[in-house]
Every structure is written in C-alpha cells, then in structure tokens.
Design a protein around this nucleic acid. Sequence first.
DNA 1: AGCAATTGTTGTCGTCAACAACAATCTTTC
DNA 2: GAAAGATTGTTGTTGACGACAACAATTGCT
Lengths: 169, 169
Amino acid sequence: MTASAPQRETPTSPARKRAHSGKARRNDAHEIGLDALVGHAGYAVRRFQIWIFQDFVKTLASVDIKPTQYSVMTVIGANPGLTQMAVANRLGIERARLVHLLDSLERRKLVKRVKSKSDRRSHALHLTAPGETALAKFKRLAAEHERHVEDKIGKGNREKLLEILGGFT
Amino acid sequence: MTASAPQRETPTSPARKRAHSGKARRNDAHEIGLDALVGHAGYAVRRFQIWIFQDFVKTLASVDIKPTQYSVMTVIGANPGLTQMAVANRLGIERARLVHLLDSLERRKLVKRVKSKSDRRSHALHLTAPGETALAKFKRLAAEHERHVEDKIGKGNREKLLEILGGFT
DNA sequence: AGCAATTGTTGTCGTCAACAACAATCTTTC
DNA sequence: GAAAGATTGTTGTTGACGACAACAATTGCT
C-alpha cells in the first residue's frame, strides 16, 4: 500500500485548477483530463457500446425493435425449434428475462411457442409467417445501422473490430 | 449464406434414452448458428463489454470498486476541484446519478464535497488523503485487469481497439 | 429588481442482470 | 417402478442504471 509520497499522481500540474471566476464553462467537457481513464479498454468499449446501442434503437425505431429482441428473433429464425433454454444460453441472457422478451414478441405475433412433443416441459420456438417477413425488414434496417457504424469508425476499422471481438459471439 | 439449422432436439423418438454413457451433452450452446448476428458490431461489442465489465469487477472485488466508481475517482483525482456537473458531463452520466455515486464514495471517505466559494450552488470535488492512496491501489488493480484484456484478445489487438475507439472517450 | 438559467438533490419510471422459489416434467438411481 | 434429483418455464424480488421531472438555493442577465 504504500506510499505516502505519491509518485505520479497528478501529472496535470497544480495550475490545473480551472479558473472558475469568470464565465469560462460552456463545453469544456472535453477539456477535462481523463488521466488514466484513457488507455482503459473497458471505458472506451462502454462509451462505444452506448453509442452503438442508441444508433441501433434509433435506426430501428420505426419498427420498435431493440437489440435484444432483434438477437432473439435472429437466432430463432436461423434455428427454428430451439427451446427457451437453448436460446437463453446461446445469447447469454437469463432464461427468466427471455420469458418476458418472448411474451412481448408473441403478443406481437412475431414468434410462437409450440409445445414440444418430446419434452413436455419445453417449448419449441418458431417465427410466425408475419414474423419471418418482419425479420427480413429488421435485417435491412440493421444493415443500415451497420453502415452508420462504418461511417463512424471507418469501414476497415469496423471489420478489424469484428475480427478482434469475433471470439465473443 | 447461412445454412439452415441442423440443430434439433431428439427428433421424436418414442424411447429416447441416451443410448450411450451417461454424461449428457452439456452445453451445445455454441453449436447453434447465429446467422446474421455474426457480423453485427453491436452484438460483438455488447458481449465483449459484458466480459470486460465482469473481469473488472472481479479483479477489483477486494477493494469493492466498480467501473463507474473508478472512473469518477480517476477524473476527480486528475482534476481536483471539479463540480459535479463537470464530472457528470465528462463521463456522460446523469448528474442525478452522480449524486448517489458521490454519496457512496463520500461515506467511504474516499472523496469529499467542498462548498465552493465562488459559486455557492456547487461543490468542488476532491479526493481525501486516504482516497488518494486508495486510488493508487485501484489503478494497480485496474492495470492488472487491463493485462487480462491483453491475455484475452492479444496485446496488439487491445491497442488497435483503443485506437479505433479512441474518439469515444 | 425581476426573470431565466444553473446546480445539487430527490423522486419516479422503465430497462436490465442476478437470484430465489415454484410447479410441471424428465432423468437417474436404487 | 417409485423415490430422489435435475431441468424447463414461470413469477417475483432485488439492485444497478439511464432518462426525466420537479424543486430549493443561488447565479446570471437585462
């Protein structure tokens, strides 16, 4: 623990005090030093995640679909007949939470729960017919969102990002 | 692309006894196709963000500091005397939320609110003496966490990531 | 002086993750 | 084949979090 004598504590010199007398505070938000925060992957990723989430929501606002709902429908569309547990595990969401997500999607007639014959505890998940066509539209909008990402960080950077984080899917 | 979905539960066999050694199939989670989800930056980022957040919490569990608390203390440590509004704006958190964060940190004697002379509405935020030494320890643990990130995605990739997402800090 | 804006604070609402508990239904074991 | 154990879907609770709204105190503006 250490140290009474701080070694590199505030590299920002004493005069960094923010002269607050006059009226110099408008958008100095980004003039404030982040110090050690810059260089932390978690912080950058968190900020980026917030941005990308908001853009997704905005881009898909006309169809009222949020990222989690989109991921659920995509997985069901690609793997019809999955159980709720399988979907929850695959997407890393609590099965308790998936219940509400499916309730909502089922109320909107996008997905349906079919009682499984082989295991009467579980439900086989399927897209409805309108769910299929809806998902196609969602995918078009999601592609548009993805283009926003390219515009934001660059086409090459987006691909590099997917390559780096590919192991987390 | 895409490839249909071969994944199906036991296909309706009347007597489906796992004909082989016990030991059920544990997690076929990653055998399930994600289809269009792969290739979505948001999904990859979300999963990565969850991982990195959890590792941060785990690594700093001994000091009971979470990412947001760490970011608040880091900014205050690097810019003593900031107002709550300035900190909130810089970190992109609601000032209403910052109130609770500071309440918690102040209760733990890590930061202090000093009544500003120049503007009696606002508080100047400072680290306490124990707060300074505590932050030094937090930074060491955070550096350890950052090494976990390197181990996970590679040193070069982490740097590339920071470069790509640098604009979001 | 008077009125708009800012700061910190409290409170509400809706989202979300992490659990705990439960009934119904398999699976295992004796 | 019946009891014990595990799994699936469900409901409910808790706590963290963001988005807002309202408010008192205090500036700033004119």
